[in-house]
Write a protein that binds this DNA or RNA. Structure first.
Lengths: 231, 231
DNA sequence: GCTTAGGATCCTGTATACCGTATCCCTGAT
DNA sequence: ATCAGGGATACGGTATACAGGATCCTAAGC
C-alpha cells in the first residue's frame, strides 16, 4: 500500500513493451496448443533459439515458464519435453478447475458490474452466431473467451492468476480431443445465474457446467483410447 | 552414486541433484519469509549473484520462479521487488486457499491410507508437544507441516502444485503477523473428520478452519493497522 | 527557493563464447 | 545378439560485453 508510484489515470508510456522471453514463451505455448509440438516433442534450446532468431537465454526462461504452467516437463540434464496429459492429469485438472470456477462464479455473481455483464453477453452472442454458422473454430474461441471473462468478473486477481494456466491446459486438451462442443445453452444458463446476482445459484451452475464438461472430455478420451489402444 | 569429491575451492555445491537455480530460489524464498528481505526490498541480480557466489543466470531464473509464486513483482527493466501483501491480497489468498483446501480435504477423506494418517497424527502430536512446551516456533512449523501433509493426503498432484505456492505466501503472512496461533484443537478436529472417511464432514471442517484462520489474520492485520496507521 | 534539464550511473535484457558433464546413439568386438 | 566403448549432442552454468531504459545527482534557469 501507500504505493504512489503511478500517476492517477495511469498513463503507461510503453505498456506494449514485452520482454523477449515473454514473447518467446507465448509463441512456444501457442505452438504446443496448436499441436505444432505434439506431446513428447523435445524442446531443444539451441534449435528453438536459432529458429526464433534469438539467443538461448530467452528460450531457457520461456521453457521454465512453460514448465511452471504445466505444458512441459524438464528432466534434469535432459531438457524439456512437451507433456502428455494422462487420464489422472485430466481428472485433477477438472477437480481444481471445478473448485476454482465455482468460487469465481460465486464472486462474480456479487461483484460483476453491468458493463461487464454486457460484455460477456456479447461474447455469448458471438458463440451463438458461430454455432449457427457452423464455425467450429470460432465457437471454440468464443467458449474459451467466455470462461476467461467469467473469471474476470470475479474481480479476484489471484484467482485469475492461478486459474489462467489451468485454463490454458484445458483449452489445449479440448483441442487435442478435437472438441468444439456445443455448450451454448449451458453457458447461457450459467451466465444468467451470475447476472441474477445469486451466488448460490451461480455456484451451482458453475459446478454443473464443470461436471458436464468433465463427462464430455472423459467420453472423448475413452473413445480415443478405444480407437488407439496402444500408443 | 559415484559422485567424485568436488574441488574444495568454493562451498559445497555437490549436495544433491537439484539444479543451482532451484537452490538459489529456495534460499531467496527463505530469506523473504524470514524477513531478511522485507517487503519493498529490491532484488538486484548482480548483488545476489555475488553474495551467493553464483552467476547472474541462476539468480535470474530463481527470481522468475519467485515471481510466479507471488513473492516478488518485477517491472520490466526495473527489476524485482519483494511484494507487500495488501488487505485485498490477503482476502484473495484466503478465498483461493479455502476453495482448494476444501477440495483437498474432501479427497483426502476418501483416499488417505492408514500409514499416511499415522504420519499426520504424529505431526499433530508434535504440535501438541510444542504447544505444551510453549515453543512458538516449533508450533508454527508443526502447523505448517500439518497443512502440507493434509495436502498430500489428497493424492492430487496438481492440487498440491497449485496450492503449495499459496501456502508459502500464507506462512509468510503468518510470520509477518507474528502469529503462531494455537490451532491445535482445530487441526485435530479437522484431521479426525478426514480420518473418519466422510468427505462432506472433512470438507465442512476444512471450510470452518479456513474461515477461522482468516478471521484471526484479519484481526491481527487490523490491530497492526491500528498501531501503525501509515508506514 | 523551487523546478527543470542534463548527464552520470545503475541495472536489466540480451547476445556471445565457452566449459564440464550427463545422456544418447552408433559402432564394433565378443 | 549382446554389451562395451566412444563420440556427438545438448543441458547447466560461468564469464563477459553492451545497449538502452530507469534513477539519481547536480547544476542551470525561472
Amino acid at each position: 500500500m501507500s504505493r504512489q508510484a503511478d500517476a492517477p489515470g495511469s498513463f503507461d508510456i510503453d505498456a506494449d513493451y514485452k520482454p523477449l522471453r515473454d514473447r518467446v514463451r507465448d509463441e512456444l505455448r501457442q505452438r504446443i496448443i496448436d499441436d505444432v509440438y505434439p506431446p513428447g516433442t523435445r524442446l531443444i534450446e539451441t534449435e528453438l533459439a536459432a529458429g526464433l532468431g534469438v539467443s538461448r537465454l530467452p528460450v531457457r526462461e520461456a521453457i521454465r515458464a512453460l514448465e511452471s504452467e504445466g505444458f512441459v516437463k524438464t528432466v534434469p540434464r535432459r531438457g524439456a519435453v512437451v507433456v502428455e496429459l494422462s487420464a489422472q492429469d485430466v481428472e485433477e485438472l477438472f477437480d481444481v478447475r471445478e473448485a476454482l470456477e465455482v468460487l469465481a462464479s460465486r464472486q462474480a455473481a456479487t461483484r460483476a458490474t453491468k458493463a461487464e455483464l454486457r460484455r460477456v453477453r456479447s461474447i455469448l452472442d458471438r458463440g451463438r452466431k458461430a454455432l449457427e454458422a457452423g464455425d467450429r473454430v470460432a465457437l471454440g474461441k468464443a467458449n474459451e473467451a467466455f470462461h476467461d471473462e467469467i473469471l474476470k468478473l470475479s474481480h479476484n486477481l489471484l484467482l485469475q492468476a492461478v486459474l489462467e494456466p489451468l485454463q490454458g491446459r484445458l483449452h489445449w486438451l479440448l483441442r487435442q480431443t478435437g472438441d468444439p462442443n456445443d455448450l451454448f445453452e449451458e453457458h447461457s444458463a450459467w451466465f444468467e445465474a451470475i447476472a441474477s446476482g445469486s451466488a448460490d445459484l451461480a455456484a451451482e451452475r458453475a459446478r454443473g457446467h464443470a461436471r458436464l464438461n468433465r463427462e464430455i472430455v472423459r467420453n472423448l478420451l475413452a473413445e480415443r483410447q478405444h480407437r488407439a489402444p496402444s500408443a
